[in-house]
Design a protein around this nucleic acid. Sequence first.
RNA 1: GCGGCGGUGGCGGAAUGGUAGACGCGGCGGCCUCAAAAGCCGCUGGGCGCAAGCCCGUGUGGGUUCGAGUCCCACCCGCCGUACCA
Length: 820
Amino acid sequence: MTELRELRYEPKAIEPKWQRVWEEERTWEASNEDDGRPKHYVLEMLPYPSGEPHMGHLKNYALGDAVAHFSRRIGRRVLHPMGYDAFGLPAENNAIKTGEHPREATAKSIASFQRQFREWGISIDWSREFGTHEPRYYRWTQWLFLQLQERGLAYKREGAVNWCPNDQTVLANEQVVDGRCERCGFEVEQRQLEQWYFRITDYADRLLEDLDEIQWPEHVKTMQRNWIGRSEGAQVAFHNPDLGIDYPVFTTRPDTLFGATFFVMSPEHPDVLRLAAGTEHEQAVRDYVRHAQTESAEERGAADKAKTGVPLGRSVVNPVNGESIPMWVADYVLMEYGTGAIMAVPGHDERDHEFATVHGLPIKRVIAGPEGEDELPYSGDGTIVDSHPDFDGLPNREALSAIVAWLDREGKGHRSINYRLRDWLVSRQRYWGCPIPVVYCDACGMEPVPTDQLPVELPDVSDYKPRGRSPLAAAEEWVATTCPRCGGPARRETDTMDTFVDSSWYFLRYCDANNDAAAWDRDVLNRWMPVDQYIGGVEHAILHLLYARFFTKAFADMELLDFQEPFQALFTQGMITRDGAKMSKSKGNVISPATYVDRYGADTARCYILFIGPPDQDADWSDEGVEGVHRFLARLWRLGVEVGVGPADSPATGAALSDADGALARKAHWAIDKVTADVSGRFAFNTAISAVMELVNECYRHREQASPEVQRFAVATAASLIFPFAPHTASEVYELVTGGRVWEQPWPRADPAMLTTDTFELVAQVNGKVRDRLTAPTDATKDQLEQLARTAPNVVAHVDGKEVVKVIVVPGKLVNLVVR
RNA sequence: GCGGCGGUGGCGGAAUGGUAGACGCGGCGGCCUCAAAAGCCGCUGGGCGCAAGCCCGUGUGGGUUCGAGUCCCACCCGCCGUACCA
């Protein structure tokens, strides 16, 4: 017999062995046929294949795989697919630098992801794999685009857009962070361009309301609510007699209308120059507007910036009292929000107050606050004063609705709801994306490409460099086409789609990934959707998650599917940091999963990343911690070798057991109970793994005394429980002790009789302080427990000479004697 | 400013209002070995004490309670998100 201590746990031998079995037997492929088991769709966010997978991917897929495995073993039919978000700028920027076709770079990266996902042993249904850059996928992206266009949900219009001068393309609002391009960090400019949009604003209310229906982290819901930014108020028209134009403003405080002392327009407001023309302020206004344009979004957006602005030399009439108030232009008014113009109420708005103070404008109080609150601006509630006989004296909240009703009757305004959410700008002047399937004909105008001519394939080009228009524009042979309506010459749209379009429906395609006749079959889709558990990073809280919800609702309206929300439950994972900092090339603290998988095996890397802490929190990677988890798996494996194959059933309920057998069997059942609760009730994988560690420690403790059968049961149970986290080692150990396949076994069940013991440790307290610990029978009465505690030597010492005024007995736990 | 999350040993972290610090790392000691590595076993919050044991201890200060890391109030600090949104 081989000396045990010479036995080495060799993941390099174990892991490929099981990967081969799963691959050859296609173990993780899911059938679209309903077999009576409840379905469970487990999905991790689509990876963007650039270079190699990083630690974030390892965490994401280790988490998802644990959920998928656990779900299968508790009897669900599980869909756990994989694909690649393969269009995008990194591959294209690489092409500009090196000339390598983005398709080549992407293919290499995908191959690396595929290889590593296999090496990690993630239980993926590979039969459904695709990349969003493959024509067989983007054909349907284009088809869906046309469906949206047919219903007016995709449209083209001219307007002010965000332009990234580095990436040479427009960006959606969601992709501009602090005035900078979310991708490259360059300052974004405003340009006036004709672009494609999706009408996501039509869905603002539904996107907001349905958040109540889904199990998502509250902070993600909050971020979406804030992004949608619904606010209730009124639209009120202020008339300018010079041009004879009504300028509507949006306000959430119509109750302060009588306090408006001036009127402010955004520098981007199209009428600003027209209004100033011919006044003494014309030149000053021109200068101010020009300056505002050159100022970066960042400078302009700084909250502590002084309130600048110039008068327009015109005035408008406040419709509620006929007062003429001066018009100004100031950059604290944003064109993007509301109507691009505001009524300024310096008495009750901080910003307006600041502006009025700087520019010497009148400040009027129209709401009286409680006693002592006589500072202006006052933004709290109070009583209407100096406004109108009908409203003076009313509480302002009451006056608010009364004033809106009155405006409505008088035709001067109406109730209005305003949103921060803008339509989603989807066209991009870049190459490596999904072509927008429309053509332009001189005779017929814009024409959608007929669906039987899809896909519009992305042509090869020789020059990827963006020049303010898509590189596709240079592919003349491709651009020149015929009009589908009149057959005459036509030109193709050369913009491509935002890659977020690709990833807004991929989870649908997985359900019916190989369907050549349609994007999906509605019945097949209904058998899997919605995704039961979605897992990914919070960085997608707004962008991807909002877009995907919008698509789902739009498709539901088109009767392409029958549910309103794509992701029933969402789990957002924390970041993996290194030395307390985010990993980045510039910091030089990047570590790659491959290093650890190579050194310790995939099971160690996966278990460690789950063991490190609660998965929704950030966690710092520690090399020493990895060693510990590796030791644990090696200890488990060694137990398997030592105990060998044979019967491994749980001791029968009520069987007479030796002390060692009893302790070990109970620990095994305790671990089953604990792991099951930790995994199913919450994502407490860290404590689940520590419970299996405890079981393994208990196995070592009873190695000499416990019977082979009970030891085998304990080891098999440990293997079975660790399987969702360390599938290879678990499979190996389970085979060593039972000869069977762990993934084919149902999830173990704890025997309730084995979860209780005859005695427990009774804590004896005096005045809430622990004074003794005693062994007490589990079935003892409260009185018996009290007597036991009262006689404990150290309790007696603390009670001595005092009066027991109260006794608290918590059966199974403690006795507390309150003395005086 | 606003919103959210968090603050527990040397470190990562664990604790349905009921034994604070499970599990892991690190450290210390022992066994094995010619020796080391690996492995196995034990100890490991701080202070006082020969010991039994006692005192202190979950960011700070109050409160509720027989009992508070946990609940309430007021603060401090850190991280994330968001910010002239009318």
